[in-house]
Deep mutational scan, measured.
Amino acid sequence: MDVFMKGLSKAKEGVVAAAEKTKQGVAEAAGKTKEGVLYVGSKTKEGVVHGVATVAEKTKEQVTNVGGAVVTGVTAVAQKTVEGAGSIAAATGFVKKDQLGKNEEGAPQEGILEDMPVDPDNEAYEMPSEEGYQDYEPEA
């Protein structure tokens, strides 16, 4: 019985440690998101679009440190934060509304985080759909 109880105690310690790591990862992701939003706020009209992409990228980098179902929630929060940063930029006159959601080359930025393969159960990952990809044929 002692062996059984000791095993359960060790398992509990492992769960607590994993929860603490997840909590730490979420806190880091939130900190990076805040950094990115402050970065966007300090940019001029020309830099705002690039700044919004930076927020998304920093958040995406930190999301990889967070495991399990938390990833889905962090990704949703990050996307809403990026959308909010863009709205703030438009409201303050840093950028025109028609410039939001495009990178410096004018290509749409939507789907940055949505296409990231995420499995809350950590069982399997699927690649994003290939609808947006084109076949590449090298020139002879």
Results as ranks from 00 to 15, higher is better:
Val3Asp: 01
Met5Lys: 10
Lys6Leu: 07
Lys6Trp: 02
Gly7Ala: 04
Leu8Ile: 03
Lys10Ser: 05
Lys10Glu: 01
Lys12Tyr: 14
Ala17Leu: 08
Ala19Met: 07
Glu20Arg: 02
Glu20Val: 03
Lys21Gly: 00
Lys23Gln: 08
Gln24Tyr: 15
Gln24Gly: 03
Gln24Phe: 15
Gly25Tyr: 14
Val26Met: 15
Val26Asp: 00
Val26Trp: 15
Val26Ser: 01
Glu28Ser: 09
Ala29Asn: 01
Ala30Phe: 14
Ala30Ile: 15
Gly31Glu: 07
Gly31Asn: 14
Lys32Thr: 02
Lys34Gly: 02
Lys34Val: 14
Glu35Arg: 08
Gly36Pro: 01
Val37Tyr: 13
Val37Ile: 07
Val37Gln: 00
Val37Asp: 00
Leu38Trp: 06
Val40Thr: 01
Gly41Val: 10
Lys43Phe: 13
Glu46Lys: 05
Glu46Arg: 04
Gly47Ile: 07
His50Tyr: 11
His50Leu: 14
Gly51Leu: 07
Gly51Trp: 14
Val52Leu: 12
Thr54Glu: 02
Ala56Gly: 05
Glu57Val: 06
Glu57Gln: 05
Lys58Thr: 06
Thr59Cys: 11
Glu61Gly: 06
Glu61Gln: 08
Glu61Ser: 06
Gln62Thr: 08
Val63Ala: 04
Thr64Gln: 09
Asn65Pro: 02
Asn65Trp: 13
Gly68Tyr: 11
Ala69Cys: 08
Ala69Tyr: 13
Val71Glu: 02
Gly73Leu: 13
Val74Arg: 01
Val77Thr: 03
Ala78Met: 14
Gln79Trp: 07
Gln79Gly: 04
Gln79Thr: 05
Thr81Ser: 05
Val82His: 03
Glu83Val: 07
Gly84Val: 14
Ala85Asp: 02
Gly86Asn: 14
Gly86Cys: 13
Ile88Met: 10
Ile88Phe: 02
Ile88Asp: 05
Ala89Gly: 07
Ala91Thr: 05
Gly93Val: 09
Gly93Thr: 05
Val95Lys: 06
Lys96Asp: 10
Lys97Thr: 11
Lys97Trp: 15
Gln99His: 14
Gln99Phe: 12
Leu100Trp: 02
Leu100Tyr: 09
Gly101Asp: 12
Lys102Phe: 01
Asn103His: 07
Asn103Pro: 10
Glu104Pro: 07
Glu104Asn: 07
Glu104Ala: 09
Glu105Asp: 10
Ala107His: 11
Gln109Tyr: 08
Gln109Arg: 10
Gln109Asn: 00
Ile112Trp: 09
Leu113Ser: 11
Glu114His: 07
Asp119Leu: 09
Asp119Pro: 13
Asp121Pro: 08
Asn122Phe: 06
Tyr125His: 08
Glu126Ala: 15
Met127Pro: 04
Met127Ile: 08
Glu130Val: 15
Glu130Ile: 05
Glu130Asn: 11
Glu131Trp: 06
Gly132His: 07
Gly132Ile: 11
Tyr133Arg: 02
Gln134Gly: 11
Gln134Pro: 11
Asp135Gln: 09
Tyr136Lys: 15
Tyr136Phe: 09
Pro138Lys: 04
Pro138Met: 06
Pro138Cys: 10
Pro138Leu: 05
Ala140Arg: 11
